[in-house]
Amino acid sequence: MRIYPQLFLRDLKVSMKRWSDFLTGMIMFILVAFIFPLIAGSDQDFMHRIIGPVMLLSSLLASLISMQNIFKPDLINGSLEQLVLSRHSLNGLIFIKILSYWISSSLPLVVVSSLIASAYYVTGIDIIKVMLTVLLSTTTLVNINSLAAALTLGVRYPGALMTLILFPLSLPILIFGSKAIEYSILGLDSSGPFYFLTGMMLLSFSLGPIATAFAIRISID
């Protein structure tokens, strides 16, 4: 069982060495999310109405711009093959890879989203709810992304194809995530969207690694 913590540590260490790749996603997130307060800053009601979609959209863009980094470098240096040839279950190994990728690429977004939320006149407990929404939606998005990245590993310029796979799968997350933030800020009962997001997160973390592992086996052939 030592292999799982080992792979986890290795991937975190490697992503620290490739920090500029991961910073790209965060810069994208901050840029997109901060543009709206800068342009249309003073109207508090308007800000409250758009923060939901903006948060989700910037998370999506941030994950889009860096999603190739999850498997492509490992495919090129050959360590992905060794993962497939390991005596351990590939599903488990991929789960660990996705988890450590989420920590290095999306956990910073959760932290930064609290600062961005205050630029949208969001205060108090609502900031926590914004962070929770970003946390729940990025965990789901990272699973969808890794599946799309694995499916297109063998394609030389996968940009358009990957987006086509991603779009329908991530749409529900965007809709329910925006609603979760909107309802929280308006003071309505937001438990419905949050239940949905949590469900999607659990579903994607249980099925995502299996589907991704399968896609990797096909792509590596």
Partner: peptide, 28 residues
Amino acid sequence: YQHLAYLAHSNSLIPELTLLENLTYNLH
């Protein structure tokens, strides 16, 4: 796979890590 060790064309080393780290985190 528990009996198989495979050396590919690519060396399956992670270029960002040192040789010692590659050894430490070697899955096999």
